[in-house]
Amino acid sequence: MDLAGFSLNMHKYYLTHLQELESEAIYVIREVVAQFDRPAILFSGGKDSIVVTHLARKAFWPAKIPMPLIHIDTGHNFPETMEFRDKLVADLGVQLIVGSVQEAIDKGRAVEESGINASRNELQIVSLLDTIENNKIDAAIGGARRDEEKARSKERFFSHRDEFGQWDPKNQRPELWNIFNGRKRMGEHFRVFPISNWTEMDIWNYILQENIAIPSLYFAHNRNAVYRDGTWLPASEFLVLRDGETVENKLMRFRTLGDITITGGIESDADTLEKIVAEVSATRSTERGNRSDDKRSDTSMEDRKKQGYF
């Protein structure tokens, strides 16, 4: 938090919107640690989970973050994300739990999709639920925001999951004031979303304000990519070219980070945080517009969330 700004506001006794959102998120993260036995943070290497991890660090300072990070590894990663993850974990001195989609496929727990739009996005659900169960995680903190997607706009801060890890959107517990009900039966768990009330703009402004390190993929860089469905998909060993498609070298960056096979980039020359904030505030399309996993149907996010997706 910007201390100079903080003391300036002191005399008026109000917080800026970023200070209030930060305070709310820290409160939620502390509630998780107080109410649950084995919480964890779901860490994807994307900006939202990086912000959540930063908030967790603030919440328990000067102690370390008192819970592990969980990364669900699709095997289709950006190398930059993996390097970033390992450095962050080492700096924070926290435990890292990796759930491997490849392992789930090898064991026959998940079946690789086939066809032209095949991805490992939905297969993550199996690995995620297995990892939660095997490690007896009773609360998994995620970086989902309500502004991202319409099914997420009805999500609670404390979101109950049944013993199959499923979400029942029509039967959610009411959530009032700042009182969170984390009671559950054996085998059930919670997903918790401390940055529910943040928008993409808030995330970027906060990263700028706090000077939080993020993977280089978010900044403009030259990369080989293929234009498909209105977005630039990075060329990788997993990308199979279709008829008429060509690989081009583009100055581009990513607005969101996920599996390398489904995360499209945008043409951009924003190579500093300041330029990214300016670009995001001027942009006229949503960040998930570059995610082919959300384009499958009007309710594809809801359908995946019900099964246990992030």
């Binding site: 099914a151 009805k154 029509k170 309710t299 809801e302």
Partner: peptide
């Protein structure tokens, strides 16, 4: 946003907008 809301043309739950 929810499937059943879109089917029935009603709002079931509190939705948060920004």
């Amino acid at each position: 946003g929810l499937r059943s809301e879109r089917e029935q043309g009603i709002t079931i739950d509190v939705a948060y907008r920004y």
